[in-house]
């Protein structure tokens, strides 16, 4: 029984990370209808920023977290302005390829700046554990779960009540109409990218203490992508739910199935989902009208 709880817990914390990255995907997709395949790399960059602020510049942890989030938000906005702005109105396939190229580029840049050997990041809460009747709960995992929950409620409030959040939703539903009612759509896009990069940065900070930081860590972005689709591409709660499903199933698969299976569980779930219910758990897509 303890094993089950243990797996469930680590699955949830891993799932939260997938969910956060997936949230970044979905946010950008909802607002701009662009699919950002470089989301994992943005998270990787966030983790490296955190590493720089904490281990190299030796800032106070909370200050470093704030600095990481702010600087990643700026990076996100810059990326949108320089690379993705010219692609507005281009076919989705071009944007997909562009972000794939961007991912390669970011990986090379990270390799050039920080080197390819893995780095570890220590947070003030690193190493501590709870022991609840046999189930060992690491502080890191707890912080991941709590951080995700906090971030999600902040986002909920933001989209529900703030003018900017509502404007973002408007821009995501109809570009042209949003222009007409006076929403500066292009600026909104920059902000969406900033927000998405900031969320990914949070994911990077949360995941860094439990895994190592290296230029290839962004590959979990692909699993996060699977999570986004399982949840129903375009649905924010769906992203988190999809992430949790994949995180939990993966943990159980690694224990109960032969080796090799846990690496592909995310993709098997994805394919099954696409076969059974292609629109995902929280459907948002509808077919084209003629």
């Amino acid at each position: 029984m303890e094993v089950v709880f243990q797996l469930l817990l680590s699955g949830i914390s891993q799932g939260c990370v997938y969910g956060l990255i997936a949230l970044g995907f979905v946010l950008i997709y909802k607002a701009t209808e662009m699919v950002n395949f470089a989301q994992g790399e943005i998270m990787m960059l966030g983790a490296f920023f955190a590493f720089t602020f904490i281990s190299i510049l030796e800032l106070n942890f909370f200050l470093a977290v704030a600095a990481t989030i702010v600087s990643m938000a700026i990076c996100g906005a810059l990326l949108e302005r320089v690379v993705l702005r010219p692609m507005i109105g281009e076919p989705p396939f071009s944007v997909l390829m562009l972000t794939i190229g961007l991912g390669f580029l970011l990986r090379a840049i990270a390799g050039a700046v920080w080197g390819s050997e893995p780095k570890s990041l220590s947070a003030p809460y690193t190493g501590g554990v709870f022991n609840v009747s046999g189930v060992i709960i690491g502080y890191e995992n707890l912080v991941i779960i709590a951080g995700t929950a906090l971030l999600c409620s902040l986002l909920f409030v933001f989209f529900k009540f703030s003018r900017l959040g509502i404007a973002m939703q408007a821009a995501s539903q109809n570009q042209l109409a949003a222009y007409y009612v006076g929403i500066p759509v292009k600026r909104i896009y920059s902000m969406v990218w900033a927000l998405s990069a900031a969320i990914s940065a949070v994911a990077g900070i949360l995941v860094a203490p439990v895994s190592l930081i290296d230029p290839l860590m962004g590959f979990i972005g692909i699993k996060a992508f699977a999570a986004a689709i399982v949840g129903g591409f375009g649905s924010l709660p769906g992203a988190i739910v999809g992430g949790l499903i994949i995180g939990i199933v993966e943990q159980f698969a690694s224990l109960y199935l032969p080796p090799g299976f846990s690496d592909v569980t995310a993709y098997v779930i994805l394919l099954l989902m696409l076969l059974i219910r292609p629109e995902g758990i929280f459907a948002t897509m509808q077919r084209k009208k003629v």
Binding site: I100, G101, L102, F104, L105, R107, A108, G111, G115, S116
Partner: peptide, 11 residues
């Protein structure tokens, strides 16, 4: 630089 080649491909 590690990943120089894919980086240039990407660029």
């Amino acid at each position: 630089i590690p990943g120089l080649e894919p980086g240039i491909f990407g660029l």
